[in-house]
Amino acid sequence: MAATIGISAEVRERVMAKYSKATAKKVARAVKKAKKGTLKSGGSGKKVTSRKQAIAIGLSEARAEGKKVPKAPKKKTAKKSAGKTVKKVATKKKTKERKAKKKS
């Protein structure tokens, strides 16, 4: 009780940890494996060389186990540009011209 003297419940809630101890262990394990050179990426199976990627893998594993971890940031989708549409139309025209040449 002596440690919480002078701190209201509201302040304590704001100071609470974002990550659980179990999450911290997962991240530490992933970073240690990355340093050792044995941590592999889930998708491609390649060796992880980036510290940031090792941390992301640790957080992802903790999330999968239901540990206390903030939600992953949402990926932004790129807007389609008009330039791509123009290229597609030009490519279709060229393809039609080639097919016409082959027929004749």
Rank of each mutant, 00 (worst) to 15 (best):
M1D: 05
A2H: 11
T4A: 10
I5P: 00
G6Q: 06
S8W: 01
S8G: 10
S8M: 03
S8A: 03
S8I: 06
A9F: 01
E10D: 06
E10A: 15
V11S: 07
V11F: 05
R14E: 03
R14G: 10
R14L: 14
V15E: 04
M16Y: 08
A17K: 07
Y19N: 09
S20C: 03
K21T: 13
K21C: 11
A22H: 08
A22Y: 05
T23R: 01
K26N: 12
K26H: 15
K26F: 09
V27C: 04
V27P: 01
V27Y: 00
R29Q: 15
A30G: 04
A30S: 15
V31E: 00
V31F: 03
K33N: 09
K35F: 01
G37Y: 00
T38Q: 00
T38K: 01
K40S: 00
K40I: 02
K40P: 01
G43P: 12
G43H: 10
K46V: 06
K47E: 04
V48N: 01
T49G: 01
T49F: 00
T49H: 01
S50R: 08
R51V: 12
R51D: 06
Q53E: 07
I55R: 02
I55K: 05
A56V: 14
I57M: 04
G58H: 03
S60N: 11
S60P: 04
S60R: 09
E61I: 11
E61F: 05
A62T: 07
G66T: 06
G66V: 13
K67Y: 15
A72I: 06
P73L: 04
P73S: 05
K74T: 15
K74M: 10
K74S: 12
K76V: 13
T77D: 02
T77N: 03
A78Q: 11
K79Y: 06
K79F: 09
K80E: 11
S81M: 08
A82S: 15
G83P: 01
G83A: 07
G83M: 06
K84T: 14
K84Q: 14
T85C: 05
V86S: 13
K87L: 09
V89P: 02
K92W: 04
K92F: 07
K92Q: 07
K93E: 05
K96L: 10
K96Y: 06
R98I: 14
K101L: 14
S104K: 15
S104N: 13
S104I: 13
S104R: 13
